[in-house]
């Protein structure tokens, strides 16, 4: 019973997002168009070598196409709806409703992102055609299962980060510093600029302790069949642990923020 209202929120948000199909196509083209130049760069880098940093040409090209799509689904951001709810006080109206604000925003954001993801697949498709046979498609159902499961978990993690970053609005009048972190440093740590195996060993090791690679690098590595079954299972477990930890952190931050919020209001 408790879940039904959130499904409804997700469905409404999905319907709303679907109404802006053309906008979605345009904004995804904006995200994807530079990909052609990125692919040309990597084609050139692989001119002289078969394998670089443990990746073949096909794997790298597939990596960039997939991450471009997946980033839109799992990349954390500062969510304007949440920060404005907090800053202008609209949050008070939400608090009166029999809903959990975190779950409500989750349903709303996921609902908005799913149509976007479908549009994204259509936009990405020509790029896969562009590189032709180099685009890898795993034939094992198990790989696909692990990949899809890790995406689902990554989306939850990504959302929990989004929520956490947005909650900083309780304290910060202006969130540009947080946005800076979310827009530049975190995408890099996720592996969106280049596969983390290209980095010096010490950096790669350091980044592997951070949660961010589980948002992008890990799922795509499952897809590229770079991981053993044990590594996949371990990674999925780490994702689940991070989700649990983030839920706890968010709860604490939310409670702290709310005390501050009511202090301002009262």
């Amino acid at each position: 019973m408790g879940w039904r209202k959130y499904f409804l929120v997700a469905r409404l948000s999905m319907r709303e997002a679907s109404a802006y199909r053309v906008n979605h196509v345009v904004s995804f083209i904006v995200v994807a168009a530079p990909l052609i130049i990125v692919l040309l760069l990597w084609e050139t880098i692989y001119d002289q070598q078969q394998k670089i940093a443990g990746l073949t040409r096909s794997q790298v090209l597939t990596y960039f196409i997939l991450t471009r799509w997946l980033f839109e689904l799992t990349g954390p951001a500062v969510w304007w709806e949440i920060t404005s709810d907090i800053r202008d006080g609209t949050l008070a109206a939400h608090l009166l409703r029999p809903e959990d604000y975190q779950a409500y925003q989750f349903a709303s954001i996921i609902g908005a992102k799913l149509p976007y993801a479908v549009v994204g697949l259509i936009v990405i498709f020509p790029f896969a055609l562009f590189i032709g046979e180099a685009f890898l498609i795993p034939d094992s159902g198990l790989v696909w299962g692990g990949f899809l499961l890790s995406i689902a978990l990554a989306m939850m993690m990504g959302y929990l980060f989004t929520y956490l970053f947005s909650l900083t609005a309780f304290w910060l009048e202006e969130g540009r510093g947080v946005e800076l972190l979310a827009d530049i440093a975190i995408p890099f740590a996720m592996g969106s600029m280049l596969p983390l195996s290209f980095l010096p060993d010490a950096w790669e090791k350091f980044l592997s302790y951070l949660p961010f690679q589980y948002l992008l690098y890990f799922p795509v590595n499952i897809y590229l069949e770079k991981l053993t079954r044990e590594q996949v299972l371990l990674g999925l477990a780490v994702q689940i642990i991070w989700i649990g930890a983030l839920l706890l952190i968010n709860k604490v931050v939310w409670d702290m923020g709310l005390r501050r919020f009511s202090a301002v209001g009262g």
Binding site: L41, T44, I45, Q48, I52, L194, F198, L199, P200
Partner: peptide
Amino acid sequence: AIYLQSPSIG
């Protein structure tokens, strides 16, 4: 990072 792995880009 790219040049760490590859001596030249084209």
